[in-house]
Amino acid sequence: MLHIVNKSSFERNSLKSCLNTIDDTSVMLLIEDGVISAAKNTNAPMIADLAVQGRVYALQGDVEARGISSKLADNIKLVGYAGFVDLVVEHGTAVSWV
């Protein structure tokens, strides 16, 4: 599965709820304000384990738009919209934590 999170973990609990139910084979894509969770900040430990496993992606345009390219946490994989499409194709059912 592909889990899509579009809210900052400082504003909403979407990331937390996603982490509560994501299984061992699914990946996560951070988009829109969700990319704030891809930056080095006090909430970074929430996804650190998943990121080490190479299972956290962030939408590059959203990262750049928010000025956090240089503050990206370790092991986050950046993708463009084409990469977003590939993730949807490759990982089956998409779940949006809107």
Partner: peptide
Amino acid sequence: FNVELSKIMSEQDVCLSF
């Protein structure tokens, strides 16, 4: 529990979020 919910979710073909 979330662990069971996780399994149920992984069996779905379409997930509509509201």
